[in-house]
């Protein structure tokens, strides 16, 4: 049994919150560079040029890429042979609190959805725990902005709707999101499971690196087909017209019930932030 001090989790989460908000992963940066080269609309190209410039300024001057530094979504995989000394949930929230206050990140969380008083430190985080074999702890921090989160959707399709129904749901969700979700988008799609499981799959899909493709050929092809269809919509960068509306469609699947075909579409803007560390 490995012993791990909760403070180590706090320290890592603090750093990861800051890092995630100042720099994008290499696959995201490459995708934006490629979009700028490929975009056919002059205005769209100009918008993408601003996004490239923005990433440079953010990194050099340590200014968050986007002022919406998000609600901190935390995926934590805990090896079953690890014992954590201390209160894990408090340790995670303390890491978020320190990261957001010391890192000059925006505090965007209210304590109650209806009385809407800001908690002042961006806590609590949204935490997804899983227990896995081994003695490592793997943490992914994915700060999620709400311009795109608000345009996300869960559709409880019928089995008879099939793959065509899934495509329609995704395409319609992108059209409904339009300029509000800050295209070019990363579209996270969850198919299967239950109502809540497919939403979680969609969220998790957003954290998958672009070079990691699904082993299931049908899903890999579906990702490519949906990306092509979305980009033919003409919505373009910032929704101002153009050939690049999405950078990537990532799909995750899970077994489901004989009566159902749940589909969740989690929209993410071009500031698709995620940092992973194993400790």
């Amino acid at each position: 049994m490995r012993e791990l001090d909760a403070k180590e989790i706090t320290d890592n989460i603090k750093e990861m919150c800051i890092e995630a908000n100042l720099t994008l992963s290499e696959d995201m940066r490459d995708a934006i560079d490629k979009a700028e080269r490929d975009e056919t609309s002059p205005l769209g190209k100009r918008v993408l040029g601003q996004l490239q410039e923005n990433l440079k300024v953010a990194k050099e001057d340590r200014i968050p890429i986007c002022q919406d530094t998000g609600m901190a979504v935390v995926f934590i995989e805990i090896g079953q042979d690890v014992h954590i000394n201390g209160n894990l949930e408090e340790a995670i929230n303390e890491g978020v609190r320190l990261g957001y206050t010391e890192g000059y990140l925006r505090k965007s969380v209210v304590r109650h959805p209806l009385d809407r008083v800001n908690t002042g430190d961006n806590t609590p985080a949204i935490i997804h725990y899983s227990i896995v074999p081994g003695e490592e702890v793997k943490i992914t921090i994915a700060p999620k902005g709400f311009g795109s989160e608000n345009m996300s959707k869960v559709c409880m399709l019928k089995p008879a709707d099939g793959v065509e129904g899934v495509k329609k749901a995704v395409i319609e969700a992108v059209a409904a999101a339009g300029p509000n979700a800050c295209p070019p988008l990363v579209v996270g799609v969850g198919i299967g499971g239950t109502f809540e499981k497919c939403a979680l799959l969609a969220k998790k899909a957003l954290t998958r690196s672009f070079d990691k493709r699904p082993s299931d050929k049908m899903i890999k092809d579906l990702e490519d087909e949906l990306l092509e269809k979305i980009n033919k919509s003409g919505l373009g960068p910032a929704g101002l017209g153009g050939s690049v509306t999405a950078l990537k469609v990532n799909i995750e699947t899970y077994p489901t019930h004989i009566a159902g075909l749940p589909v969740a579409i989690n929209m993410c803007c071009h500031v698709n932030r995620h940092v992973t560390r194993s400790i």
């Binding site: 918008v47 601003q50 410039e53 923005n54 300024v57 953010a58 968050p64 986007c66 300029p179």
Partner: peptide
């Protein structure tokens, strides 16, 4: 007017 969403570091200048 629209400003470019997600370009907050650049716009801050």
């Amino acid at each position: 007017f629209a400003a470019v969403g997600g370009a907050g570091a650049l716009l801050s200048k």
